[in-house]
Design a protein around this nucleic acid. Sequence first.
DNA 1: TCGCATGTTCTAGTTTATACGAACAAATGA
DNA 2: TCATTTGTTCGTATAAACTAGAACATGCGA
Lengths: 100, 100
Amino acid sequence: MRSYKHPAIEDVRLEDVFYALSDPVRLEIVNRLARKGEATCAALDGGRPKSSMSHHFRVLRDAGLVQTRNEGVQAINSLRRDELDRCFPGLLAVVLTLAA
Amino acid sequence: MRSYKHPAIEDVRLEDVFYALSDPVRLEIVNRLARKGEATCAALDGGRPKSSMSHHFRVLRDAGLVQTRNEGVQAINSLRRDELDRCFPGLLAVVLTLAA
DNA sequence: TCGCATGTTCTAGTTTATACGAACAAATGA
DNA sequence: TCATTTGTTCGTATAAACTAGAACATGCGA
């Protein structure tokens, strides 16, 4: 459980972001992270297996939406708000408004 | 070449819209339609085969993004701007700004 | 009526997701 | 040191997408 790859936000394509958001589970994750600020993977599984959640978080990381850091034994996830706002101004706000 | 299925905009889920926009070809189509207002399928193929374009337009229709009507032998496509703005306020504007 | 143009539908092939169990890695605490 | 917890990685099975050719339907003009 160590070393996550986070792409430079400039390398993220708009299509990648849309793709990441096209799955209900991931859209829910983004929505929850926006409200909670941070959350572990386990806190957001809906009874889904760990491997499935790990997969979805990875897609979100690859799309530049989520950043993950380790804290002890757990992984803390949060949105890359500032960077997203800089590179895709307005997008996150609309997504969070509509997904709420 | 007749009778297209256009879902009621209320039945369209946000994920469906994101999914439709997650393909570069389709994002390009949406972008072009926004500028041109209307266009036939043939006008927007980039040398791609007709069947591929037909597929992408169908995905866009199913996601509520595009409406198609027949005019003689050709199919005229356009964005469902007003309906999208009503059901997903702000979304199209952001998409078109960022995809430009 | 015949031929042409525009798209759709069908089908197949290849690729790409998704889901999930099992094995594994790392950190923590007993 | 050993068991526990959290999450990753691997392998595999199933489902869905993308691409594209071929056949087909429709409308129009010659």
